[in-house]
C-alpha cells in the first residue's frame, strides 16, 4: 500500500472513530441515574407481556390438534410459529389433497391423495394426544 493510501486510510478510521464517539455521547445523554430515558424502542414493553417464541411453540405443541389450523388466524407471528413447527415435516404435494375420512371420538383418519387423485397414504391419528407435528405434516 502506498504512503498516500495509508494516510487516507488513517484519516478514514479517525473520522469513523469521531463519529462513533459522538454517537456514544448521544446515547450517554439518554442515560439518567443508570436508566435509559427518552423514547424506548418499539415493542420494548410488549416483550414482557408476550411470551417469547420458544414457550409459545411449546404451548402450540400441547394444543389439541384439531384446534391448530384455526389458530393460524390469531396473528402472523402465530401462523409463522405454527409453520415453523412443521418446517421439518413432509408437506402436502402442491397439487395433492388431504381428506379427513372420519373423526370418530378421539380418532382421526386422514387420507392423502396425489395430484391425479391416487391415494398415497392413510393414517390414523389419536385424538387430542396427537402431537401437533403429526397433524402439521398434512398441512
Amino acid at each position: 500500500m502506498s504512503k498516500a493510501a495509508l494516510k487516507a486510510e488513517v484519516g478514514r478510521v479517525h473520522a469513523e472513530n469521531d463519529r462513533l464517539r459522538r454517537a456514544l455521547t448521544d446515547v450517554c445523554g439518554q442515560i439518567v441515574c443508570g436508566r435509559l430515558m427518552g423514547d424506548l424502542p418499539d415493542n420494548f414493553l410488549e416483550q414482557f407481556s408476550q411470551l417469547p417464541d420458544r414457550p409459545l411453540e411449546q404451548v402450540l405443541r400441547y394444543l389439541p390438534a384439531h384446534q391448530v389450523p384455526q389458530m393460524r388466524f390469531v396473528s402472523r407471528k402465530f401462523n409463522q410459529l405454527i409453520k415453523k413447527c412443521s418446517k421439518t415435516m413432509p408437506k402436502k404435494e402442491r397439487n395433492g389433497s388431504v381428506l379427513f375420512k372420519s373423526y370418530d371420538g378421539r380418532k382421526l383418519t386422514v387420507l392423502l391423495f396425489d395430484g391425479r387423485g391416487c391415494k398415497i397414504n392413510e393414517t390414523t391419528l389419536g385424538g387430542n394426544k396427537v402431537a401437533l407435528s403429526e397433524l402439521l405434516r398434512f398441512i
Binding site: 410488549e46 408476550q50 409459545l56 384455526q70 388466524f73 390469531v74 396473528s75 402465530f78
Partner: peptide, 14 residues
C-alpha cells in the same frame, strides 16, 4: 381465535 388473541396480547395483523 379472538379469545386467544386477547389472552396472548396479540394483534390481528392480517
Amino acid at each position: 381465535v379472538e379469545w386467544v388473541r386477547d389472552y396472548l396480547n396479540m394483534e390481528n395483523d392480517y
